[in-house]
Write a protein that binds this DNA or RNA. Structure first.
Lengths: 184, 184
DNA sequence: CGACTCATGTAATATGTTACATGATTAA
DNA sequence: TTAATCATGTAACATATTACATGAGTCG
């Protein structure tokens, strides 16, 4: 799973500049890439070298030059092969769990404080995600099926955050119960 | 969130060798580190240099030498400060979403095949996680609260996988419906 | 005897982030 | 006029994975 495939995927919707791609990739909560310059611009150089995208340099009177990339037939072929190849399983990187390893160092009150503060952070994240989804549920081009897919892609991080919130509340309420009976 | 803090956390349960730590960290589904040599052994060198762990070299007649590490008071102090510091939010790296970006390249049948194969993979993962949890729900040392915490830590990846499976089934059943009505 | 686990460590590679570098346009 | 956005790219740093290197003991 490299950023090249995501770049090619975005180019299916039409030609885009490196700057466009970098913003699209960076803005997406669903994709694991930050969309930093090094990532996107070097990916485009590689894709062009491999003939998977074509490049058109636009010299304009207003603003700096733009390099606009278009996916080639070879690019579509390569992309389709990758899309249908085996999908890697998800990985969930949850720093809260690393903290909990050392919970023994904390009093009941401190542990509750830690989890409470985290629950608040998580709620704020959920609100942000809900707001983002309300505003723009992905590009409005492409087939109705593809538009549905974009909704689904954008919805996914929210569902994960919800699942985490449910888990967290269970843990907190369990820890609030008197004491000793730590079995589920 | 660096592997050093996880190492210190494990050492709260008692002295361990680099090899022990590497296995513990690598075996844990909940922690984002692979537990490779470079990671763990260099982390221990650093922690020792900083005085957060003490080292005891055991020369034994059977097998190679072992270096056993113990967390120091300074180590506990530093660890507690980190534990109570702001927790980073979770990140969910889901390669399936990267594939879905390019779903436009696929026919209905191909998309269904892709999602079906992934659903199977995910189910197998869930079975493995359930089996792992049945066998060993974390170390059996420490307070009852800490044992509960270990259960919770181990349960978390399973809950995330369940949430993903629910999401996936919704998507699949929606895509199976006749066609055209892509709105939720 | 060959593969696996125990036990340590280093080197090479891959990947990712932050910062640097430049320069025009636009909005407050 | 100052900050933000547009637009490109490189350099330095940080982090992570795979592979290399060594060597003893155990199990089939």
């Amino acid at each position: 799973m490299s950023v090249e495939n995501a770049v090619l995927g975005f180019l299916l919707g039409g030609p885009l500049s490196g700057y466009d791609l970098k913003k699209l990739i960076g803005a997406s909560e669903s994709l694991p890439w930050s969309g930093n310059n090094n990532q996107v611009y070097t990916a485009l150089v590689q894709l062009h070298r491999d003939g998977l995208v074509s490049k058109e340099t636009q010299e304009r009177d207003l603003g700096p030059i733009r390099k606009v990339y278009t996916i080639t037939e070879e690019g579509k072929q390569a992309l389709k092969t990758w899309v249908m190849s085996e999908v890697e399983l998800s990985e969930h990187r949850m720093p809260i769990l690393s903290h909990l390893i050392s919970a023994d160092l904390l009093s009941d009150a401190e542990l509750d404080e830690l989890l409470g503060a985290y629950a608040e952070q998580l709620q704020m994240k959920i609100l942000t995600l809900e707001e983002m989804q309300r505003r723009e549920a992905g590009p409005s081009f492409g087939s109705s099926r593809q538009r549905f897919i974009w909704q689904v892609i954008n919805q996914c991080p929210l569902e994960m955050a919800h699942a985490e919130a449910v888990w967290l509340e269970e843990v907190r309420s369990h820890l609030k119960r008197p004491r000793g009976n730590a079995q589920q």
